[in-house]
Write a protein that binds this DNA or RNA. Structure first.
Lengths: 300, 300
DNA sequence: CGGGTCTTTGATTAGGTTCAATAAGAGTGG
DNA sequence: CCACTCTTATTGAACCTAATCAAAGACCCG
């Protein structure tokens, strides 16, 4: 953590030739530390690289964090933005009673720390869920850079706007969707992120606990666990602890609510029998992939 | 609406002089409040005004909208940001089944349209809930201005960051708070906004329907209505249709959940009687300000 | 191996939704 | 000005989803 204040490369001239060796995907190495060029940064953030950004003398320092370490804490003075180069994190708000509210799970290519700009203090804290390699983007340096690289400034607006849209989608999800739909969409978006990063979109490990997922989705950890089990039972996914296999993305993507399980069917039938006697179907458990069951899964 | 496309400053050479008010065949009215200076804009947005911004030739056009009119629609190409000079609006997302999700209720001093920057199309739509007077801020013109007025650019980051923090608070609220707490906080924040704007914080009219409030808070309109009635019954507020009187802000601010109402007490007593017979208290309605009732209202 | 954390699963219940009926306004046009 | 309609708000009753409480297994790490 102490190393965070040391990054002070300013505009010190460095011989480009001496540093011309790209270090795989891990950025440049200098003084035992990793550095990234502006171009690499843009690529990471998925924003267009322009011809004016070919200045390889301009470098951004990386910092490593180990699992469980805090990147910044609530109330800490804001001065730098972070871009995830590798690893997984969570950002959380702590309410007045000490309860955590998970806001996001930043991973490769994500920017965080933006919420500190306004109050000049971070209102949230960021914690590494795995070992992480982060690129430091000192805010002042960044603003200054915007003057030399005009497109960069626009890119920043774009990235912040993207974050805003993401939060809006989150609000919409929390406001309108059932527990099952939330978990389903969460899995789909994770799957897509893993695909983006070059991992398998079909089989991956969750980096966060059920509790953290629940907090993120506005659910309890039990509901998350139960929902995953239910998805597993009807063959949408496979679950084994943190390991998730996606079997039917399309179903997950469009799922609104789950059909009643067999045990709850019995209860429901019992209740409804009073009003509407219906053909008594003996409790044969629905086949996992039964098409008759599928339609009920999907949204109207 | 057609006037929105008229000022086109592109990203050409950026001398402040080039940005001064465009031609204007017909005499423009500064008295009719159809135009605002940069200083006025900063004041509106609650951001610091610097000495360099004293150029009164630089003007921003206003546009009026009547109740019910749409300012921008979903999918419409993005090109301008809006600042509310007066009036009330809502911004909504429409999901794949046509359901509205209210995202915000912009009012005086609020900026909206920011979510369109990233995709270059508005992902949401904005609707006037009352007659409105908006300041147009063509995005390209604004970006160009950032070069001449350095503080303006920083202010923009700050405002966007503020929006992000607001959304985070929203997510946190939706994820963690009870219906009653949501409604209570909504009323408090409205009250504070009205105070900011110079109106009474104790007595005001809601500009939105119960349905819109419910959508914003992730609740049904019935729950909103019931909750307001409950607050009214215990003397926290007065309600008469759209007119709201705030009686106890502090109680609203810290409220977590409501004590069971007298009618529900009877039901609950009936249920619990089986397990735990308790002193039968005849249904005398609780006095509106009964201190014994207060403590239960507050958070642990 | 043992203690802590994380996960699964069951039983119960509370909070909020849904459905339904009524009332109260706000326009509109005769 | 009143009848008519449409939207908005209130209130009740039944139901259902997800939270809560509880207990037992699985996993991890020193």
């Amino acid at each position: 953590m102490g190393s965070m204040q040391t990054q002070d490369l300013r505009s010190e001239p460095v011989s480009p030739a001496a540093l011309r060796l790209p270090h795989l995907e891990a950025g440049w190495q200098r003084q035992g530390k990793l550095w990234s060029t502006l171009k690499e940064l843009c690529a990471l953030l998925r924003i267009p690289v322009t011809s004016t950004m070919t200045d390889d003398d301009l470098l951004f320092q990386h910092v490593q964090f180990k699992t469980g370490q805090r990147i910044h804490t609530i109330g800490q003075p804001f001065d730098t933005l972070y871009i995830v180069h590798s690893g997984f994190l969570k950002t959380v708000l702590i309410d007045e009673y000490g309860n955590e509210q998970v806001l996001s799970f930043p991973m490769k290519g994500d920017l965080f720390g933006v919420d500190g700009i306004h109050t000049r203090r971070y209102p949230s804290e960021a914690v590494a869920l795995s070992n992480c390699d982060l690129v430091l983007l000192p805010f002042k340096k960044f603003v200054a850079l915007g003057r030399s690289y005009l497109e960069l400034e626009h890119a920043m607006y774009s990235v912040m706007s993207r974050e805003l849209v993401r939060e809006q989608a989150m609000v919409s999800m929390l406001g309108a969707l059932s527990a099952e739909a939330r978990v389903a969409r969460f899995l789909v978006s994770l799957s897509e992120r893993f695909a983006d990063m070059g991992y398998s979109s079909k089989l991956f490990n969750l980096r966060m606990t059920r509790h953290e997922i629940g907090s993120y989705l506005g659910l309890t950890l039990e509901t998350v666990s139960r929902t995953l089990s239910a998805f597993n039972e009807i063959g949408l996914i496979t679950v084994d602890q943190r390991s998730i296999g996606i079997c039917d993305v399309e179903a997950l993507r469009t799922l609104r609510r789950l059909p009643p399980s067999t045990t709850r069917n019995r209860q429901a039938a019992g209740r409804k029998a009073r009003q509407l006697p219906q053909p008594l179907v003996d409790a044969a458990p629905a086949a996992p992939g039964d098409p008759a069951t599928w339609d009920q899964l999907m949204s109207a």
